[in-house]
């Protein structure tokens, strides 16, 4: 039984990596080459939900499935900001999550990058203007890359994250 189940996950499920578009390539080029040299071709990602509807989280989860297989690119999710190079932040940052996001950012060692995910992470999305919402992620911590979409598909997420690795 186990043998059968293990066989089911081998190729050909895993798909070739998506091509980068010009806009993302430009963003990636803006990143610090020295820091990238120091980190090599691997990035540890800490995901922070700062007010999302959980749609973005579902698609971020999908990066780990056999079709997308994030770890083959040296990208992996870690359990603590203290182990992270990248904070992957979703949500129109809520006022109730603002301090938690700031503290997570402060707990992440330099050099670090922040990727704002989703239309809400970009500018607050449909929740912009609410009394309970700060707005996009960049209103609270400095953002290096924005991956739009509601939610962005795993392919869009993968393309964005790969741009961090390929200057």
């Amino acid at each position: 039984m186990l043998k059968f189940l293990l066989q089911g996950l081998r190729a050909p499920l895993t798909e070739p990596p998506p091509a980068l578009d010009a806009e993302l390539a430009a963003l990636a080029a803006a990143l610090d080459r020295t820091a990238r040299k120091r980190l090599g071709r691997g990035l540890a990602i800490r995901q922070v939900d700062a007010g999302s509807c959980n749609g973005c989280e579902l698609e971020i989860h999908a990066l780990n499935n056999a079709f997308h297989d994030l770890e083959r690119f040296g990208l992996r999710f870690v359990a603590s900001p203290r182990h992270a190079d990248v904070l992957l932040v979703t949500g129109p940052v809520t006022k109730n999550m603002r301090e938690a996001l700031e503290r997570t950012w402060n707990a992440t060692p330099d050099p670090k990058w922040v990727v704002a995910v989703g239309d809400c992470g970009a500018d607050g999305g449909v929740f912009a203007g609410s009394y309970a919402v700060v707005g996009g992620v960049s209103a609270v911590v400095p953002v290096d890359l924005v991956i739009r979409g509601c939610p962005p598909s795993p392919t869009q997420l993968l393309r964005g994250l790969l741009s961090l690795l390929t200057p």
Binding site: D49, G51, P92, T94, N96, M97, V126, F127, V133
Partner: peptide
């Protein structure tokens, strides 16, 4: 709980149906 409170019911007050359905 309450960390992801976004004020949804306030955003839905006096909203056009088309905007409310997206929220």
């Amino acid at each position: 709980l309450g960390y992801v409170h976004k004020g949804i019911e306030a955003l839905l007050s006096d909203a056009q149906i088309a905007r409310a359905e997206r929220i």
